[in-house]
Simulated scan of single mutants.
Amino acid sequence: MKDSVLHFYDELADNYHLLFVDWHEAILRQGELLHKVIQSKLNLSCTNNTTLLDCSCGIGTQAIGMAKSGYKVTATDISEVSVKRAAKEAARYGVNINFGVADFCSLNKDVLGQFNIVLSADNAIPHLLTDEELVKAFHNMHKKLLQNGLLILTIRDYDALIKEKITSTQPTILDDGNRIVFQVYDWAQDDKTYTVNQFILQVINEEWQTKHYSTKYRALLRHELNTVLEATGFVDVEWHFSSQTGYYQPILTARKD
């Protein structure tokens, strides 16, 4: 499974920004909204000395946003290709981020130090398809947090998605009709996992070109995540929904007691 996820993000890294209406605006907006949620949980008067590990940084969407909000950011990802691009983008934005390559399940070995905050955004956690993988990942995240540190995750609303069992998303038409982005979902017979087929159609040199990427996810329900988090030593587990936060996905927070 690790190899297929790695292949997905390695292949997508150069074009990941095309999934957004405006990736640069998303960096700033997501950083601001995540900061507000963190502020509500930690009551920070100043972020300059607040350390944050983004352990699924991708091409840097949240890591750059959090660095611009004043956090001392370390950012890791399983995809070295994505991390290399993230480092280039961070330099372009003029922010100092410590980048590295690491798996969720080996953070304690691969990443030095402990942090006030551990972040995983953009539906990365559901790549872990079994409870055993979740337990291992959350144990590693728990070890990376300082006492009373905050875990913050963002994932799709699977409690709603599993009821609807949608098979595709509505196409998003961008760049005056020259870019179209959509997903097709292939649900497994267990009704708990599905393959996402990500399509990007784009006019290049007056011709339509199609890019296709696929990866597998687990439709993680809220009570399932809550149970595993509590079993791995987290407390004060709380869900924050888009209607409250303005963020595009539900946000989960939990503390290391």
Rank of each mutant, 00 (worst) to 15 (best):
N123P: 01
K88D: 15
F104E: 10
L119W: 08
L146H: 05
V118R: 00
R85Q: 12
E133Q: 05
A86E: 12
D131C: 04
K109C: 04
A86P: 14
E89C: 12
S79R: 03
T169N: 05
I152C: 09
L107Q: 07
F115G: 02
V81A: 02
E164H: 14
A91Y: 12
L112T: 14
I125E: 14
A137M: 06
I173G: 04
H139K: 08
A75G: 06
C105K: 07
A102K: 00
V95W: 03
K84T: 09
A102Q: 04
T130Q: 03
D159P: 00
P171N: 15
F99T: 09
L146W: 06
L145M: 02
G113D: 08
I78S: 00
A91F: 13
E89I: 13
N116V: 06
M141T: 08
S82F: 01
L153D: 11
K144D: 01
T76Y: 00
N116I: 00
V101C: 05
D176G: 12
H139C: 01
L128N: 10
E133I: 03
K143G: 07
A87M: 15
Y93D: 10
L145Q: 00
R156Q: 13
S120Y: 11
A86Y: 13
A91N: 15
S168K: 15
V101N: 06
A87T: 14
A75H: 05
E164M: 14
R156D: 12
K84V: 09
